[in-house]
């Protein structure tokens, strides 16, 4: 373990890297999925980490904490600036809340997609659930969906395309530069949404194969990227 080697943060990314915002939440889980897809990945934390990123994933976590940290680290402007440069952004769960331009009973954070979202819309952890659905734009196979104290997208603007609607709410949507999902594909064995996002970023992930929906996949797979200090 090299804690004080700051050169790690100075490495320039070549175009074609997808970054995962490494402030709080399910970071390793996304990295593990990108690794399985053969996509170059990086944790991003400092302003210089964003240089040349083709895409950025804002992971699940607590949206109030992530919003606070984006402000403290002065990263909000950096994200906006790189979004304007053409970096695509995908927000899962808390990430989707940060990207929305309207949040029920709260201020928006990045406000990059025209939609209204309600935080923690299902109830407590006892109301968290797993399900599955076909998302036509993404895959012809049913995709496993994991909702953890999830938000609901209540409505989207006219330039936003609904990817998945369930009952009275929207669970996934996209605009030109943004993808949002209120569920957690990184907590399932399925790579389909990571593949979809990589393609949207102009990258070429490993060829599609049956392990895209690998039911034998273990939720602990992220842990090889999160071993104890030695």
């Amino acid at each position: 373990m090299v804690i004080f080697d700051m050169s790690v943060h100075l490495v320039k990314h070549t175009p074609g890297v997808i970054g995962v915002l490494d402030l709080q939440g399910g970071v390793h889980e996304h990295l593990e999925h990108l690794e399985r897809l053969g996509i170059p990945y990086a944790r991003v934390k400092q302003p210089e980490d964003f240089a040349d990123l083709a895409g950025l994933i804002i992971p699940g976590g607590e949206s109030t904490c992530l919003a606070r940290l984006l402000e403290i680290f002065e990263l909000k402007e950096v994200v906006l600036q790189h979004y304007l440069r053409g970096m695509k952004i995908w927000g899962t769960c808390a990430g989707a809340i940060l990207l929305a331009d309207k949040v029920v009973d709260d201020k928006p954070c990045l406000g990059l997609i025209d939609m209204e979202i309600e935080r923690n819309s299902f109830g407590s952890q006892l109301d968290s659930f797993q399900s599955e659905a076909i998302i036509k734009a993404v895959s012809t196979e049913p995709i496993p969906l994991t909702f953890i104290r999830a938000p609901k997208i209540l409505r989207v603007g006219k330039d936003v395309n609904v990817l998945l609607r369930i009952d009275d709410y929207i669970a996934a949507a996209e605009s030109d530069g943004i993808v949002v999902t209120v569920f957690h594909p990184e907590l399932t064995g399925c790579l389909a949404l990571h593949r979809y996002f990589a393609l949207k970023c102009g990258l070429s992930p490993a060829a599609e194969n049956p392990s895209d929906v690998n039911r034998g996949w273990e939720n602990v797979s992220w842990m090889k990227l999160a071993r104890i200090a030695s």
Partner: peptide
């Protein structure tokens, strides 16, 4: 699902609070 909720708390701080006021301060503090 229960293990996964804990995963979403990684990298975070959980604070002891004894009333509503402290809970709001803790939430606002991140």
């Amino acid at each position: 699902l229960n293990v996964q909720l804990a995963q979403m708390l990684k990298g975070g701080v959980i604070m002891d609070v004894t009333n509503v006021e402290q809970a709001k301060i803790a939430e606002e503090a991140g």
